[in-house]
Every structure is written in structure tokens, then in C-alpha cells.
């Protein structure tokens, strides 16, 4: 009796624990689903704008490896395809024109032959008339030839125009590429500064300060001047320290010299880190 004292309570206890465990394992997601219902999910749809990849494609040829090589390859292919298409369209147009000219020439030939036949048949008829006709024929041919020439000229003009348009487009691409480049490099600079930044406890979101960074083409920082304070001296100081600590933005030496002169020689740097406390 004394030994059996604990057998029933033990059984009840073990059963209770097993039941609890099962309840936990099966229903654990219950809590989560309930919570999720309170927060409706927001979907953000992002569409890739066509201009941007085009823009980045060209300057990436001489850029550092950390920009995506595969992406660049794709873009290159895309551009090639576009050019090819354009060329094909041109060729097709040319072909069409040639064909038209040839057809008209054929027609004229046929007409001529017929007329000659008629002439032969009507040899007896007045030679003068025939000569006249011949003259008319010649004139006609001449006119046709002129027409053809004119058409060719037009075609050439068209070609030239298209070429000009293409060049213009390429120029546009190059310009926007510069913009994108500048953007990506300033992003890199920002990243580097943030990495070297030791945030003061008083830093809060929404604090923005602006600097002008004077740089050498190799990325060496020569001078840092605060142009717009955030209103918090410690914050400004820490940002300036961070820039000075970076010392040399190694990525900058990959920037084409013209772009560097235009944008980075005196670089306006807005320091606005996003992952701060409220």
C-alpha cells in the first residue's frame, strides 16, 4: 500500500505534462496567426525602370568588381540587341526601296520591249512617230532614273538622320550613366562614413548635416568643411570625425576623371543615417 501511494498521482502528473506539451506543439501557431491578423500586410510593387540599367551599363565597363558583373553583361547584351534591331530595320527599309526601284525598272523594260514589238509590227508606220515615241521613252527613263536617284538620296538622308538620333540617344545614355554613377559613388561614400561613424547617444533620426569634402582624384580627403549643422554639435563633430577617419575613399579612384572633376573634386556630402533611434 505504501509503495502504491505514488503510482496514481505520478500517472496523473505525467499525463498532464504530456497533454500540455502536445497542446503547446500543436497550437503554438495559434498565437502567431492571431497576432498577424492585426497587422494587414502591405505589398510594395517595384518595377524596374528601363532607363537606369541602360544608364549604368556603359560606365560599368571600367568600374570596380563589386558592381554586379552579371547585371552589366545583361545590359550590354540588351544594348547590342537594340542596336542590331535598329540596323535590321534600316536594312529592311533599304531593301524595300531597292525593290521598288527594281520593279519600276522591270516594268519600264517590259513596256519598252512591248513597244519595240509594236514598232516592229508597225514598221510600216511612220518612223517619225516611232522616233518621237523613242524620245518619249528616253525621257521617261531619264525621269525614272532621276526619281531613283532622288529616292536614294532620301534614303541616305534618312540614314543620316537615324544615325544622328542614335548618337543623341547614346549621349543621353552616357549623361544619365554619369548621374547614376555619381549616385552610386556617393552612396558608397555614405556607407564608408557610416561604417566609421561612432554614433553619439544624442543622435536621433531626422538629424541631417551637410559637408563639403575636398578630394584628390585618388580619393584622399583633403579638407572637410561643415556647411550646414544639424543643430547638435556632438552629432556634427562625430560625423566630421567619421569622414576624417575614412581618410581615403578608395573607390573614388575608379571614377572617370571628367566625372570626378565635375562632381567629386568638391563633393557635397549630406550625412543622414537612417537607422537611428526615434
Amino acid at each position: 500500500m505504501d509503495q502504491n501511494r505514488f503510482s496514481i498521482p505520478m500517472m496523473i502528473s505525467v499525463l498532464l505534462h504530456i497533454a500540455l506539451l502536445i497542446a503547446f506543439l500543436v497550437n503554438w501557431n495559434f498565437f502567431k496567426t492571431k497576432k498577424n491578423e492585426d497587422y494587414p500586410q502591405h505589398f510594395v510593387m517595384a518595377t524596374l525602370v528601363d532607363l537606369k540599367p541602360k544608364a549604368i551599363a556603359k560606365p560599368q565597363q571600367n568600374k570596380e568588381q563589386n558592381l554586379d558583373a552579371k547585371n552589366f553583361e545583361d545590359l550590354k547584351n540588351l544594348k547590342k540587341q537594340q542596336e542590331q534591331k535598329k540596323k535590321e530595320a534600316e536594312a529592311l527599309e533599304q531593301k524595300k526601296k531597292d525593290q521598288a526601284a527594281k520593279e519600276s525598272a522591270d516594268k519600264a523594260e517590259k513596256l519598252k520591249q512591248q513597244k519595240q514589238k509594236e514598232e516592229q509590227a508597225k514598221a510600216a508606220k511612220a518612223k517619225a512617230e516611232a522616233e518621237k515615241k523613242k524620245k518619249v521613252e528616253a525621257e521617261k527613263q531619264k525621269a525614272e532614273a532621276e526619281l531613283k536617284k532622288k529616292r536614294e538620296q532620301e534614303a541616305q538622308e534618312e540614314k543620316r538622320r537615324q544615325e544622328a538620333a542614335r548618337q543623341e540617344q547614346e549621349k543621353h545614355i552616357a549623361d544619365t550613366a554619369d548621374d547614376a554613377n555619381v549616385k552610386s559613388y556617393s552612396e558608397l561614400i555614405r556607407e564608408r562614413v557610416e561604417q566609421n561613424w561612432s554614433r553619439p547617444p544624442s543622435a536621433r533620426t531626422g538629424m541631417v548635416c551637410e559637408f563639403v569634402i575636398d578630394m584628390l582624384p585618388n580619393g584622399q580627403v583633403v579638407k572637410v568643411t561643415l556647411t550646414k549643422s544639424s543643430g547638435n554639435a556632438a552629432y556634427d563633430m562625430s560625423a566630421e570625425q567619421a569622414i576624417k577617419r575614412v581618410e581615403r575613399f578608395t573607390e573614388i579612384k575608379d571614377v572617370p576623371i571628367d566625372v570626378f572633376e565635375k562632381y567629386f573634386r568638391r563633393f557635397k556630402f549630406v550625412f543622414n543615417p537612417e537607422d537611428l533611434r526615434q
Binding site: R5, F6, I8, P9, M10, I12, S13, V14, L16, H17
Partner: peptide, 11 residues
Amino acid sequence: ASVISWAMIFQ
């Protein structure tokens, strides 16, 4: 420990 203490509680 929990199992044993519950057994003791029932007992």
C-alpha cells in the same frame, strides 16, 4: 522536477 512535484501535489 515539474512532473515529480505535480505527482506530489496530487498525492
